[in-house]
């Protein structure tokens, strides 16, 4: 079986210990809550989108190291990006998690995952994929509220 080192990379544990962009944003920032009904994990995403750009993002909730570090890294990755860039990043991340597929057009677009690459190892532990993806689904929900 794959070793725990594949799962619990140092960078993941660092984001878990010291989550970035924790907190809330007042309206008109949008707010979405995501639940993992199987395990009780919860992620809240506050999103401030102005002129098609993610001006600010805050993350709340509680859960395991994978769900919380994924949310923290996600918040860093999307801040300052355009809505279209964020959507491309979500797609790229979910394809890394093997739940979406990249077509040729997707693959030709350059999307940098950066620190998020550290979550690659989660794929070897299929039960934990839902932990890693929870915040991204919540982000998508907050994004669709912000750009109806």
């Amino acid at each position: 079986m794959p070793g725990l080192d594949d799962l619990y990379r140092e960078i993941i544990l660092d984001h878990y210990r010291s989550p970035r962009n924790r907190g809330e944003l007042p309206p008109p920032a949008t707010h979405a809550v995501g639940h993992n009904p199987l395990c009780g994990d919860e992620i809240e995403v506050y999103l401030d989108v102005r002129d098609g750009v993610v001006h600010d993002i805050k993350v709340g909730g509680q859960g395991c190291s994978i769900s919380q570090s994924s949310a923290s890294m996600m918040s860093q990755a999307v801040k300052g990006k355009t809505v279209d860039e964020v959507r491309a990043l979500v797609h790229r991340f979910k394809s890394m998690m093997s739940i979406e597929e990249l077509d040729d057009a997707d693959a030709s677009v350059e999307v940098k995952l950066g620190d998020l690459e550290a979550l690659q190892g989660v794929v070897k532990f299929p039960v934990r994929i839902k932990c890693a993806v929870l915040s991204w689904n919540t982000l998508t929900e907050a994004l669709s509220q912000a750009t109806p």
Partner: peptide, 9 residues
């Protein structure tokens, strides 16, 4: 330690 992480270990 979160229970998921615990059960994984």
């Amino acid at each position: 330690i979160h229970p998921h992480d615990l059960s994984q270990v």
